[in-house]
Amino acid sequence: MDWLLGTSLGGFLVAVFYPVVSYIIPPETAEASARSVVLGFNPLDVPRNSGQIFKFGSRPGILVRTPSGEFRAFSARCTHLDCTVQYRDDIQHIWCACHNGHFDLAGRNIAGPPPTPLEAYDVNVRGDQIVVSRRG
């Protein structure tokens, strides 16, 4: 009886502390959905007139650094058929290769079939971090 009681108590303690330890030392996975995200690159490493895709929740976002050095971020899902857009430094547009959709540096649909602008995010540079947040 005492052995059974001791074993059950030991098992109980293991079952209680295992999740606690797992919580304290989590696996390296990002959060499922986010209202804001800290990008994994330093603002100084992003050249002017360039764009980079980043993960925002489970969806792609695009960070654009304009030729004047300003950071802007948008959803990278084209509003036409959901292809991932890219930055074209030759024409300084956000561009969708699928059907030649063009967006300006404010995310506005300016040519091709995309019916609406890209969803815009807020960008804040805090020291060596870039924080992108959903608006509203």
Binding site: T29, A30, E31, A32, S33, K55, G57, S58, R59, P60, D82, C83, T84, A97, C98
Partner: peptide
């Protein structure tokens, strides 16, 4: 289960298919 990173990466395959 937390699989958002894998879903994010898999999203690229739609674009690969179109390409």
């Amino acid at each position: 289960m937390e699989v958002s990173t894998a879903l994010f990466e898999l999203d690229e395959v739609s674009t690969v298919l179109i390409r």
